[in-house]
Structures are given as structure tokens and as C-alpha cells.
Simulated assay, not measured.
Amino acid sequence: MKSILVLNGPNLNLLGKRQPEIYGHATLDDVADLCRAAAGDVTIRMEQSNHEGQLIDWIHEARTAHAGIVINAGAYTHTSVAIFDALNAFDGPVIEVHISNVHKRESFRHHSYISPRADGVIVGFGINGYAAAVRQICDLINAS
């Protein structure tokens, strides 16, 4: 099972259009291309939803379909115990990614429900953080 699920939460479908001064001009398609290039022979499944339950369903499916998860849960990072619980039911590595440096933004963004489950957290490197996360998970799953 050499595949990675890359999950994107609310508003990331507007990447490149919404607040480009914070998130840049790259689109989610650009993120997908970057992840696939970083993955080498590992398959990438890229998903985005504005709905918490859909993200949870994909995490549940990942238990039998994917070796690792890269997740940018968007605003759900700061609010969703349900996503945290779903990730706790996943046995593989999880890397949390944020395009902006959330620690330089509003104080409510400083807390993450995802981080206690994550094997690593990447913030503030733009979309390049996704590639770093994919490479790290590839290293972990290829070593096992």
C-alpha cells in the first residue's frame, strides 16, 4: 500500500484566488502537481472538501487504502475534535501542513487539534510545505 492521502479542508478550493497576499497565487491543482512530483513512485490521492464529515469519511477510508496522510484541515484545524479523533484511528504517519505561518496570525489560529496526532507539522513555507510533507511520509513508509 504505497499511497498517500493529501487532504485539504474548507476554502482551499479557492487557493490562488482567496487572499493571495497570505496564501499566494498557486492553485490546488498546482499543489497536486507538486505532491505528485515529490512522491516519486508513491501514489497521491488529493481531496478537498468544505465539509467536516466528508474529511472524516476520507480519513476512515484511509485506514485500509493509504500508508500516510498529509492534511491541511484549514479552519477545522482550530475547531475539530472529530477530525482529531478520526486521525487517531489511523495507524500510519500524519503530517499537518499550513501554507501560512499560523503563529504570526490571529491568536485563535495558534491552537491546533491536529498537532497532537501529527508526526510532524509544517507551517509557513507556502505550498512547498506539501512537498516536504509528502517526501517525509515517503521516507517513513519506504523505511518500514
Rank of each mutant, 00 (worst) to 15 (best):
V94Q: 05
A118F: 06
T43S: 10
Q19W: 05
I59Y: 01
I71T: 06
S100I: 00
N142F: 03
A132M: 15
E52S: 14
E61L: 02
A62S: 09
P20G: 05
D29Q: 14
P10C: 11
N13V: 02
I56C: 10
A37E: 15
A65P: 02
W58N: 01
G126L: 04
H98F: 08
Y113C: 05
G9H: 02
V31N: 07
N8H: 14
L12H: 03
T43D: 06
I83D: 00
F108E: 10
A133L: 07
V70Y: 04
M1P: 13
I114Q: 01
G40H: 08
A32L: 10
V6A: 11
I4M: 15
D91F: 05
N101W: 12
S144T: 08
T64F: 13
I44E: 00
V42D: 00
Y76H: 08
M1C: 12
L140T: 12
A26P: 09
D119I: 05
C138A: 12
G40I: 11
N50G: 12
S49K: 04
I22V: 15
K2G: 04
R45N: 10
A82W: 10
H110M: 10
D57R: 04
G24V: 01
R135L: 07
G74H: 10
H78P: 04
V6L: 13
V81W: 15
S100A: 14
N142A: 06
S112V: 01
R36N: 07
H60M: 06
N72K: 09
L7R: 06
A131W: 01
D29A: 15
G24D: 02
A67C: 06
K104T: 09
L14D: 00
V123Y: 12
A67V: 03
V81A: 14
T43G: 02
A32N: 14
E96T: 03
I69W: 02
N11T: 03
A132S: 15
D33Y: 06
S144E: 15
A131E: 03
V123H: 11
F108K: 08
G126T: 01
L28N: 03
L55P: 00
R63L: 13
A143G: 11
G53Q: 14
F84S: 07
L34D: 07
V42C: 02
N50D: 15
A67Y: 02
I122E: 00
L5I: 02
N13A: 05
I59G: 01
I59S: 03
V123C: 14
Q54P: 01
G16S: 12
D33M: 13
E47P: 00
Q48M: 11
R117N: 11
S144L: 11
D85E: 15
N72S: 04
G126F: 09
V123G: 02
R45I: 08
K2E: 13
E61T: 00
D85P: 12
V70A: 10
G53R: 13
A67M: 06
H78N: 12
T77A: 04
A118M: 07
H98W: 04
D41V: 11
I69E: 00
D30S: 03
H98V: 04
R36L: 01
Q136I: 07
A38N: 06
S100P: 07
R105C: 04
G24K: 03
H103K: 09
R135H: 08
G92S: 09
A89W: 00
L34Y: 01
G92M: 04
W58L: 13
